[in-house]
Amino acid sequence: MFIKVIKQTETWYYCQYQNLYFSNQLQEAFAAGLLKPGMNVLVDKPKKFANNVEGLKQCVADFRKDLPWVERLDLTNLPAANIISQAEEKASAPAAGELDADDDFQREMFFYRQAQATVLEALPLLNRHSIATKRPEDYFAEMAKSDQHMQKIRKKLISKQMIMERSEKAKKLREQRKFGKKVQIEVIQKRQQEKKAMMSAVKKYQKGMTDKLEFLEGDQKMNKESSQGSKKAVNKKGPSAKRKFKDQKFGFGGKKSGKKWNTKESYNDVSGFRAKIAHGKGGKKGKGGKQNKRPGKSVRKKMKNRS
């Protein structure tokens, strides 16, 4: 190796010396006026093609060896006949000389049918030489890569899959958080709107602008139906919200209004009539039919100072 480096160095120095020598000669010729325009012209030399036929034949003869077919396993076949086109009476496929090399479909079909012909000829020859053409059921081919290498690949694939799953999970969580935040904002806005509506209803009730107390029901208020164009539910007949609120607060004491109204029977019944009571001559009043009146404010004050 050391000797090779020395030789390369010597060659390099020699080339540099030759370049310097020719450069000096050109400079001297230019100074003497020997170089003139048009003297130096690049001329393309005709390329010489070596067609050594005898040498090529000798090389082919060296390659050829008289070996049995089992050792060579080479076959040269023309493409198989297109049975489908023959059965359907279509035009036969073009031969090798008529094949258009630029047509991808024709070229690939030619290769395909040529492989078919080779298989049809090779299988009987292989069976004749007792060469198995099918893999046995208990055949295990040695892998091109070791188990350790495959384990590394497997671990790497599993790690990539786990990273992708984590990424997808994080993405879903972010979307859920965004959706949850959006829903939360909508709920807060809805509560604020309900609170605002309730406060305005309370103010209207306090000012006497309305006598409805539906805002006190809160969550018991009837929900509106979905916004799919459905009609509102028809409220059932019954007591108003004010009546319900009073019933809830004071209880149910029975009917009060109209209790002292006269009826036909009570109008005709005079058994309970008392003249003294009717004309104010007796009853709850004091002697002489006079009512005990409350003393005035000044009299009460004097009575209080006396005591």
Score class of each variant (00 low, 15 high):
residue 231 K to C: 03
residue 216 L to Q: 02
residue 90 K to I: 01
residue 24 N to S: 13
residue 237 K to M: 07
residue 275 A to L: 12
residue 293 K to C: 07
residue 17 Y to C: 04
residue 226 S to F: 01
residue 53 V to R: 10
residue 263 T to M: 06
residue 284 K to F: 04
residue 140 F to E: 13
residue 170 A to M: 11
residue 116 Q to V: 15
residue 132 A to R: 11
residue 166 R to A: 13
residue 189 Q to N: 15
residue 249 K to M: 14
residue 106 Q to L: 02
residue 275 A to R: 09
residue 80 A to W: 00
residue 101 A to N: 05
residue 165 E to A: 15
residue 85 S to P: 00
residue 161 Q to S: 15
residue 108 E to Q: 14
residue 306 R to E: 13
residue 146 S to I: 01
residue 114 Q to T: 15
residue 82 N to A: 14
residue 173 L to M: 10
residue 215 F to N: 03
residue 70 V to P: 01
residue 11 T to K: 14
residue 225 E to M: 06
residue 145 K to V: 14
residue 303 M to V: 08
residue 224 K to W: 02
residue 258 G to Q: 04
residue 86 Q to M: 12
residue 174 R to V: 05
residue 63 F to V: 07
residue 243 R to P: 00
residue 70 V to A: 10
residue 63 F to G: 09
residue 200 S to E: 15
residue 83 I to F: 07
residue 189 Q to P: 01
residue 232 K to T: 05
residue 137 E to M: 00
residue 166 R to M: 11
residue 257 S to Q: 08
residue 123 L to C: 03
residue 220 Q to Y: 01
residue 240 S to E: 04
residue 89 E to V: 07
residue 63 F to T: 04
residue 18 Q to C: 13
residue 285 K to C: 02
residue 81 A to P: 01
residue 86 Q to R: 11
residue 76 T to F: 06
residue 300 R to C: 11
residue 114 Q to K: 14
residue 77 N to V: 15
residue 283 G to F: 00
residue 169 K to P: 00
residue 250 F to D: 13
residue 307 S to G: 15
residue 146 S to D: 06
residue 39 M to F: 05
residue 216 L to R: 02
residue 49 F to N: 09
residue 275 A to S: 12
residue 118 T to Q: 12
residue 50 A to Q: 08
residue 67 L to F: 06
residue 44 D to G: 02
residue 122 A to F: 00
residue 260 K to L: 11
residue 265 E to A: 15
residue 305 N to K: 15
residue 306 R to K: 14
residue 262 N to T: 10
residue 254 G to A: 08
residue 267 Y to G: 03
residue 37 P to C: 03
residue 124 P to H: 03
residue 252 F to G: 03
residue 194 E to F: 06
residue 306 R to W: 07
residue 201 A to T: 04
residue 22 F to Q: 10
residue 195 K to Q: 11
residue 202 V to W: 04
residue 85 S to G: 10
residue 47 K to L: 13
residue 142 E to K: 12
residue 231 K to Q: 05
residue 186 E to F: 02
residue 182 K to W: 04
residue 275 A to W: 03
residue 206 Q to E: 14
residue 21 Y to P: 00
residue 103 D to F: 01
